[in-house]
Amino acid sequence: MRAPDRTEKIALLGLFALLAGGAFLPQWALFLVTLALAKGLVVLSLLLLMRTGLVSFGHGLYYCLGAYAAGMVGQLLHVGDAAVMLLVALAVSCAVALIVGLLLASYRGIFFAMLSLAFSMILYGLLVKSAALGSTDGFNITVTAAAGASLSSASRRYLLFALSASFAAMAAVGMHRFLGSHLGRLAPAVRDNELRVEYLGASVRRVVYLNTIIAAALTGLAGALTALVVGHIDPEMAYWTTSGEFVFVAILSGTASVLAPFLGSLLFELLRSFAYQYSPNTWQMVVGAAMLLVIMFLPTGLWAVFGRRGKRVA
């Protein structure tokens, strides 16, 4: 028998714990957690693709699009409202995914990975050539209000943290339900045997297309959140190393649970941050060694630690 599913309960409990605990966190930790949760959204979207049997090396495309969409709202329309910025980012990344997805849905495996990478590098190239947008230096974003109400600097910090936490919890619960639904269950089926899915009467192409768009929406939202939290954006967000880092964290987290991306992302940010502090000259080695250890001892990702214990209890 399967153990009772407590994912949603844990997600909601986690949200309340975060919202309450956030008020007591030191500022640096609040910032780190906010960033980790926002990036966790990207990793969650990669989890959906990985469940479908796809790896994207071009998630930077939507991440960067979301950030620049939010930034342009501030820059061109002089609107500093977080709600408007996030909505525009969501709309822009979905719109682009609707078009790009049409092409991507025909590819699998390495071809899907490389084509998505190509799209993100096109955006990178365009942004680098745009002197008006600051080229590689990018530009600053300031959030002055949220849904009409103006903000002080302390309330802005907490608001962005609460927003990230709420989006993370909502996305985790939503993704969990989606993966359990009829449509969601087709994802692993597509990964395992496309032919059989087609014979069962479902459209593989439609599943891949839909999942690509959901992933893009989450990633665009995360990009805008990151932009608001950091206060600065640049084309590096579309560069392939950024996409690579998301894949790195996705592998670190594993695809076993929708909660794994947030845990993996948080651990990664902590690891990297302390590696920067304690070994400024060799931090890459520390991060690389961690990756190596996870691959060797936890081949299904960090979540395996919980999975094993769960089984023993059940």
Binding site: W28, F31, T226, V230, I233, Q277, W283
Partner: peptide, 24 residues
């Protein structure tokens, strides 16, 4: 002195700056 690597892009640098000021 406390040294920090500037590599990694602006997102990481903003994060590291905050750590430098508030944690270190």
């Amino acid at each position: 002195l406390a040294f920090i690597d500037e590599a990694g892009g602006t997102t990481k640098q903003v994060s590291e700056y905050r750590d430098l000021v508030q944690r270190q």
